[in-house]
Design a protein around this nucleic acid. Structure first.
Lengths: 224, 224
DNA sequence: ACGTAAGACGTACGTTGTACGTACCGTGTC
DNA sequence: GACACGGTACGTACAACGTACGTCTTACGT
């Protein structure tokens, strides 16, 4: 009566695999935060013993790398070389924004673990391709890529709250505002409402337009 | 003979204080990495028992916040309102670069822990002040601050190698280059030398000039 | 001189990552 | 069909971790 379990569609549950482990880890992190991730919790999530995980993952660090890999694999990088390069650049940076929004609590791990698959190179390739299409020479293209990456990264960190410092405390502790003396932080106090009201979308696009506009104004060999 | 120990300059060694604990933690992190930090190691560093730390720090999380606080306190934010705002903006963003260079391995912690002192607001205040000086209105100033922060953050993360992913693997694994097929990553392969040769200084300034130039070109109420 | 509060310390508990040995199970090879 | 074998699941065990709790020493106000 249990013979048909071995059909051509084996029930995915009992089969333990690296992909399933990573997925469970990602789910756990998104639900309870990166601190809550432990090999025991992941094992419990999958209904297996702790050490069974080590048949598919050498250690916890490798699991975290797997998580980072999984997240960047979620980058939707469809590209239409026919479009103007400005729009392609926007789409690229926005793809970053999307994954960061989809996996907010995984971002810490993505940022602190390297990705040794070629997946990590896809964004770089895209950025270089469109810089090339825009008519920039090699070295400049590399710098453009790095500047775009830097902005995409930083903006996303701020928005998802991975970076707790800087101006993020603004919205959380309303009572702290009272203790600020306007003498030391006049502009911060004066612009309190603007600082408190988050409109990440336009904030993000503002900086993005700034950068792309600057790139557009840059001299280059061939104009489109 | 030990009476003069209680002079006006008490020997800093035996006196256990929060500042000394934080400093030891920072030193340990910079020497051995953030993973090596543990309450026991810090205590050993200071030659005290583990639980003695808890008289000055409620828990490890608070210690990490202290570390983050210490690092941002190192921001050298001298400012001359007389200078053109472009130069002031450059100085501000470069201050970020400097601390990130001074405490590279602490950056992970700085980024993932909030700072509840007013120290965290100093950069924001500076950015808003110079945006104001440049003649931008309130909401725009806030956006400018956020864009500058985003770039400063992202650029520094890339440079210090906190972000292991993206294009950082490029320089480390020279053998990986061979496995890249030029069909999938034509631009990456073509620009390999440029990608490998790191000139962080000019990379950083390139993006910074891009941003500030774009700001300069932005319409605003009062021109300087 | 004495009570009191603060700080340094030791012990102990629960949780973590993982090294190691064991048991099962499907797949060639005779 | 019997059998050895490689891969996988599992349980046990250990060192290191964060920290709650109780104790002891010490400095100080009275």
């Amino acid at each position: 009566m249990d013979g048909d379990v071995t059909s051509d569609t084996p029930a995915p549950r009992p089969v333990l695999t690296r992909a399933r482990i990573v997925q469970a880890a990602v789910g756990l992190i998104e639900r309870e935060g990166a601190d809550a991730l432990s090999m025991r919790r992941v094992a419990a999530e999958l209904g297996v013993a702790v050490m069974s995980l080590y048949n598919h993952v050498p250690n916890k660090g490798a699991l975290l790398e797997g998580v980072a890999e999984h997240v960047v694999a979620g980058l939707e990088l469809e590209d239409d070389p026919g479009e103007p390069w400005q729009d392609r650049a926007r789409a690229l940076v926005r793809a970053f924004r999307k994954v960061a929004h989809d996996y907010p609590r995984c971002m810490t791990i993505v940022l602190t673990h390297k990705i040794d698959t070629q997946l990590g190179l896809r964004p770089a390739e895209r950025a270089l391709a469109l810089a090339d299409a825009a008519g920039f020479d090699g070295p400049t293209s590399v710098r453009i890529m790095r500047a775009l990456m830097a902005y995409a990264l930083g903006a996303q960190l701020r928005e998802t709250g991975v970076v707790k410092t800087l101006d993020n405390l603004v919205e959380t502790q309303a009572e702290a505002w009272a203790k600020l003396d306007a003498a030391e932080f006049p502009h911060v106090v004066a612009l309190a409402p603007e600082l408190a009201s988050h409109d990440p979308e336009t904030d993000f696009e503002f900086g993005l337009d700034l950068l792309i506009g600057a790139l557009d104004a840059l001299p280059r060999a061939s104009r489109s």
